[in-house]
Design a protein around this nucleic acid. Structure first.
Lengths: 244, 244
DNA sequence: CGATATCTTGAGGAATCTCAATACTAGTGG
DNA sequence: CCACTAGTATTGAGATTCCTCAAGATATCG
């Protein structure tokens, strides 16, 4: 899938062919289920931005003056402890929304994992729009609810699963998200580093690496080139992910 | 603070003196910032229920036909793995809302930790009301955002903190929540069992117990009767909670 | 093709868990 | 009021998972 051409999109923002009509992320995000009028209004305050991998969108504590929607690529959210320990709280991909915490400042940092395109919404204008269009607010609420459910799953993973169960759960989650985005469930693309995976699962890079090796040796997965992983038996992987 | 008299409240539901006007939880919950008209409508579909400790409100997978608001007492939410491992994802107290995940079925189980009173809202009617009163939806969205932020803090705790840091963080959280509810920050009431604390922090009961003993020996805390804990030095406790 | 970052593998150690025994607490009935 | 019971909490000893530190292998990028 070719990435959406953002430079052109920018120019046509307020023209008759606005960028959203061609957006790959639309059906997955707030923009789904908006009336044409609402969509146009949203588009009129949208900036499209593109960053290469490793770019910090904002840091914990920064003034929260924008919300974002990922249109392509992957973004990680994380929190830090004073001594540098890091917990990645989520990986965001096409269609995911970020900046939901409606406080004055961000409660986490956000950094691109791959080259990434985003729609950027100034917070104040976005809030005004939400007041005007309850449908949009409703959609955002529903997205927040889903995130909350995902967060609870992640707590179960972090608090109660073994390293092996964590890795299997992680691979299955990537697979399921790929399906939701219209890709096929199997081989799954793993764009993030071992260190990022470790900080997401509450492990060290060494343990992540060792666990991958073990699963590979047991023929549960196959490590392919380009950061892809083939899941050789989805059923047993599901069992492994829950300790059954 | 005497608990709100719920039996009488029930009767006066639709009368001129509706229960909400006397509700201790009101300022903390959805009901805050509602217009009298909205509040009356909400009250008209409210059932007040009371359960003793250990009662299961609903189980993971049950049809999600109601939302609840805790008016007194403590409720725990948890998820289970097939082999019985348990992760408590939250303790809800006065003013907290539960059932936010607006899907067809609950994604977690809910059980009372102490004797508890709740307002019960039938889900369908509640949703209709949300459509009618955007202000209420907005409030609920804001509460969901706060929960999301809390969930991220909990992920950091579960993934990256030591047992000692977890216990200190937990005590501070209880203290902060007590303050928000109008109680004093110090000695803090800990109504849940060691086993519940363990399942909330991703530890075992033994480790929780040992850690309490260590903190007591070091004079950081004092264990008092009635499940109360005195925090002897809030500043150093804050440091201990973050590994500084 | 060399430099640098990332990943893998190994050996030993530490935090936490498991299993087991003992102590405490609260409620019950004599 | 006391003894008894059942549940909960504490303490101890040993096992285990995962971490830490260190070296080597592989991949990536100019």
């Amino acid at each position: 899938m070719p990435p959406f051409d953002l430079s052109r999109a920018r120019e046509t923002n307020t023209e008759e062919i606005h960028p959203c009509s061609a957006c790959a992320a639309r059906s997955l995000s707030v923009c789904a289920a908006l009336e044409p009028e609402e969509l146009r209004r949203l588009a009129s305050l949208t900036q499209t931005v593109r960053h290469e991998s490793g770019h910090t969108l904002f840091g914990e504590g920064d003034a929260a003056d924008a919300l974002y929607n990922v249109t392509s690529g992957t973004v990680k959210l994380y929190k830090l402890l004073p001594d540098g320990r890091r917990q990645i709280t989520g990986f965001l991909m096409t269609g995911d929304f970020l900046g939901l915490a409606l406080n004055e400042s961000y409660a986490y940092s956000a950094e691109t994992v791959t080259d990434t395109s985003l729609c950027r919404f100034p917070r104040r204008k976005m809030e005004a729009l939400l007041d005007e269009f309850p449908r949009m607010q409703r959609r955002l609420f529903s997205m927040a609810s889903n995130e909350l459910a995902a967060a609870q799953d992640q707590m179960l993973l972090l608090g109660r699963k073994s390293a092996r169960e964590k890795i299997c759960s992680f691979l299955l989650m990537l697979s399921q998200r790929a399906v939701r985005r219209g890709f096929k469930e199997n081989p799954v693309s793993v764009p993030m580093s071992r260190a990022d995976i470790a900080d997401y699962l509450g492990l060290t890079t060494e343990t992540v690496s060792r666990t991958f090796t073990m699963l590979k040796t047991e023929r549960v997965i196959t490590l392919m080139e380009g950061g892809k992983v083939r899941l050789n038996d989805m059923d047993s992987l599901h069992d492994l992910a829950e300790g059954a």
